[in-house]
Design a protein around this nucleic acid. Sequence first.
DNA 1: ACGGCCATGTAACTGGTTACATGATTAC
DNA 2: GTAATCATGTAACCAGTTACATGGCCGT
Lengths: 191, 191
Amino acid sequence: MALRNALLAALIDRESSGYDLAKKFNSSVANFWTATPQQLYRELEKMETEGLLSARLVKQDKRPDKRIFSVTAAGRAALLGFSRRTPKPTTVRDELLVQVEALAHGDVASIRASIEAHQKASRTRLEGYEQRLADILGSRTEKEFLATGSRLGPYLTLNRGITFERENIAWADLALTVLSHRYPGPESGTS
Amino acid sequence: MALRNALLAALIDRESSGYDLAKKFNSSVANFWTATPQQLYRELEKMETEGLLSARLVKQDKRPDKRIFSVTAAGRAALLGFSRRTPKPTTVRDELLVQVEALAHGDVASIRASIEAHQKASRTRLEGYEQRLADILGSRTEKEFLATGSRLGPYLTLNRGITFERENIAWADLALTVLSHRYPGPESGTS
DNA sequence: ACGGCCATGTAACTGGTTACATGATTAC
DNA sequence: GTAATCATGTAACCAGTTACATGGCCGT
């Protein structure tokens, strides 16, 4: 009953298949919601039987058939209702930061490697977000867009995702610098 | 099996009761992990029976008794083992951003109010984090601390929390400004 | 007299994760 | 011929949420 709203938001501007959504929930939407493909298929099924979504089957040759979901009038009403409720507080689950919190009681070399991997993943997501931002802006400057553009919501969430990933990258730099001063290892090196 | 590691990290430097932890998971640790009191009590119980924690009963008069948990040798070993594993990717669940994503299909006045509430909550958490940072630094400057201090891990996670909340506040300012230009409401005013 | 804080918990439910299965197609 | 991509799903399990219960103390 919470993933549901994220799905409505993801489908309202563009109908998609479960497979498309799985990719979206690993890239553009990942910034504020995550879900596994299994969760999506289960929830889409439920939402269709409840009338929030309608599905049409698209037959493809040379490819498996796919079911394209779109938001119904009832779905739009549900989304409007959701926008009026008080959103639940943000929840985060970040195992890397748990490792860092207990740095002094863990394996520092391994944690350093995790920070590097995390930073790399942030760089990749950041590139994706910046690409999407460029697509939304088109040839307009940010100012022009803010005054007249039509995809304000996605712009704002993307903007949040971009600064978030930039801060992740900067934080990783700080952490790595501090670690190399305080726990000088045997040639700390990224390959 | 994931909350468990966050608990070990939270208890390793200071033994605490379930109640203390519930507060911690709403303030200092909230930055990278959240959990309800019920989750904590259940998990603490399990971890004690598995030998990762030991509990001692502290009788209080004028107050209910409390059980103080501390990490055992087996718990320390588990934490070290965790530090060597690849951390799972960060998961986020932010209903406010879901509302903002679907801005054009929702109730803008209500969403604006949600952004304001969210910003206020960020300010409160930020103050708490800055207070804790000051406690960790003591009379040292940040540079002195980084060269010689002993609570590096908590410093780094706190630092991440502080920039995160600052960015939340700045983002809310941007969002509110954009909204008041694009959806000028009837005297948009915080009381 | 009432709500809030301290401190712990049970029970029932909902939501999320992991592992596995299918099967054709395209690219190397 | 091997792996990756497209596209969907089942089953079993584990984790998280919500609602409720207890009971004395403190402040107003």
